[in-house]
Design a protein around this nucleic acid. Structure first.
Lengths: 212, 212
DNA sequence: GTATTATGACTGACTGGTCAGTCATCGTCA
DNA sequence: TGACGATGACTGACCAGTCAGTCATAATAC
């Protein structure tokens, strides 16, 4: 692909390179605008302005607004999922695995623009069923399955005493989801100590008695 | 109010009654449209058609689209909150109190149009900060406080062994919120046994060991 | 009780503005 | 020089909000 004397590959230095740059700029700008305003209220003109590009250029890369929206939102989360579902080193306790998961999530999702994207999916998912389903298949289901595997290990090892928890990995995820929502909607005037909350949640799962 | 020979009161039979009917019809229709399409994509014409009313009539009741949206969404949830925060009969165990809360929530919110409204607030809250703040003050904060009080009793009585839980009532709410989101986005193709999940969550809180 | 007038709720065609998507033209690179 | 990427003015559709006119009902007169 790289050494083939293809006209496209030859142009890599200037033409294709600039095209790729432009595409990236458009994607960045579009994500900013879509997360800030939602699908319907976002203007293509604004995306173009923010990307430093004319409106027509956008239509060289995407067929229409809806296609652009779906393509962007789809690809924005999937790559990062691997780092979350990565198998942990053997010999770690299940509690540590979940702690790593929570920390990674906080660092890579909740505190970055990816958090906005999660909110965006929740906001627009009803109006774009195919988008919701795509996220279920590619983000939610694998995520749930990964957590489920960890929980099963916890139950098998006796670290987790509520065996039914493995049937509902959603319970382990719920506080993380709540954090994303909370920070987006209320964080400005009612900040939440997410880290401490998630630690408490782990105490709950692992049945550690604590004094206040 | 009913016997006063007021011109307004006199007209209650026909004129004012019809006006009230109309207003209700508009509110119903507007909630349907807004929850189905979101704020920006909802057309006033469609609300009018659905309410069986001319467009101009809507502007006799609401100053503009945004005012209507905010007023509707604001008032739609507040009244029902009382039934959720109602003090339970003394002598009930904390677990029972939370069970009642969960059941009431499922019956009155998750499985009704109120669930759509919760989703709507989450979806549009970012774009209507005053709406988010209103909901925080009038729905979230009282709700959190109510659950917090129950949890404190649980800690004091020794029913709950993780004392820090009382600092984060959000942890008790999180699965309920997740249920609403899940059913709205994925319920169609990946239904979730919410009742069983919430029961498991209570097992977690009350440290009941269970076998699968 | 009946006729006449006054009221204001209701209507929907219309306006002004916005915005997605197009395309004739231009500029640039191989 | 020829080809193709980029441009932005333009078009047509769409829609929030308006307002002059209609009509059912209430108030008043007789």
């Amino acid at each position: 692909m790289s050494t083939k004397p293809d006209s496209e590959a030859d142009a890599l230095s200037t033409r294709a390179a600039k095209a790729a740059e432009r595409r990236t700029a458009i994607i960045e700008a579009a994500l900013d605008e879509f997360t800030a305003r939602g699908f319907a209220a976002t203007r293509i003109d604004d995306i173009a302005k923010r990307a430093g590009v004319a409106k027509g250029t956008i239509y060289l890369h995407f067929t229409d607004k809806e296609a652009m929206f779906q393509e962007l939102v789809r690809t924005a989360l999937v790559p990062k999922l691997q780092s979350l579902t990565a198998e942990p080193a053997p010999g770690t306790s299940v509690r540590q695995m979940l702690e790593v998961f929570a920390d990674t999530f906080l660092r890579d999702v909740a505190q970055t623009r990816r958090g906005d994207i999660v909110r965006l999916v929740m906001a627009e998912g009803t109006r774009f069923p195919s988008l919701a389903e795509f996220h279920y298949r590619n983000v939610v289901e694998p995520g749930i399955a990964g957590i489920g595997r960890i929980l099963e290990i916890g139950v098998a090892r006796g670290e987790i005493s509520v065996a039914a928890l493995a049937r509902f990995p959603q319970l382990a995820i719920a506080p993380v989801l709540l954090s994303v929502i909370w920070q987006g909607l209320f964080g400005r005037f009612a900040p939440l100590d997410v880290q401490a909350m998630l630690r408490t949640h782990l105490d709950l799962i692992f049945g550690e008695r604590t004094e206040s």
